[in-house]
């Protein structure tokens, strides 16, 4: 772009349109804890969402006003932001949200992503890690691979009773999987051992 590197993505919109879009995205994010959108929009909404959680953690009259004027449905979300979310992220030094790439959702094949609040009830990485560990155990391996170890650390580090919760999720998966899983899939899975990465 002329005049040097862009400081933010313009998302092919004029300023007011972009602001409205981002406000809509973060309103949905705080309402549902997790949203699926295009990757570029997710990254831009992530910036705004992180700033809003910082406002929540500041918990002053000024920050409350800033939050009120950002959300489209402030009276549903501001109490949540200054209540449960503030407590959830009290110990965490930034990095309250996460963007995970997924297969394209839109029919123009634009790269899509999930934007989620870390350690929330809809934490996709938490669930994926639980699955990875459960599968590893079902195959009889006690040691996890490097990336799964990193993910376990990320997922349990600041979560309240993180290790216990992850263990519980793994146990639950083990109970559910056994009747559902067909026999042929297990054979196929054993053939594909190799580079296992998230």
């Amino acid at each position: 772009m002329a005049g040097g590197a862009a400081k933010y993505r313009h998302l092919s919109r004029k300023s007011s349109h972009r602001q409205a879009l981002l406000r809509n995205l973060v309103t949905s994010l705080f309402k549902h804890e997790s949203i699926t959108t295009t990757w570029a929009k997710a990254k831009e909404a992530q910036r705004l969402a992180e700033k809003l959680i910082t406002l929540g953690k500041k918990n002053t009259e000024a920050s409350r006003r800033r939050a009120l004027e950002t959300f489209y449905t402030p009276h549903d979300i501001v109490p949540k932001l200054f209540g449960p979310l503030r407590e959830r992220y009290a110990e965490r030094p930034g990095g309250y949200t996460r963007v995970l790439r997924v297969e394209p959702k839109k029919d123009d094949q634009a790269p899509s992503a999930i934007l989620e609040l870390v350690d929330g009830p809809k934490d996709m990485r938490f669930n994926m890690t639980a699955r990875a560990v459960a599968r590893q155990r079902s195959k009889g391996f006690e040691t996890l691979n490097e990336l799964t170890v990193t993910n376990v650390r990320k997922v349990t580090q600041f979560r309240k009773d993180g290790v216990e919760q992850l263990e519980q999720a793994i146990q639950q998966l083990g109970l559910e999987e056994q009747p559902k899983k067909p026999a042929f899939r297990k054979v196929k899975a054993e053939e594909n051992e190799g580079d296992v990465r998230a």
Partner: peptide
């Protein structure tokens, strides 16, 4: 590569 959660083939750096 293979998905660590289900063992099926998936694209790298993208969730299964």
């Amino acid at each position: 590569n293979t998905c660590p959660g289900c063992g099926q083939i998936k694209r790298a750096h993208v969730l299964c």
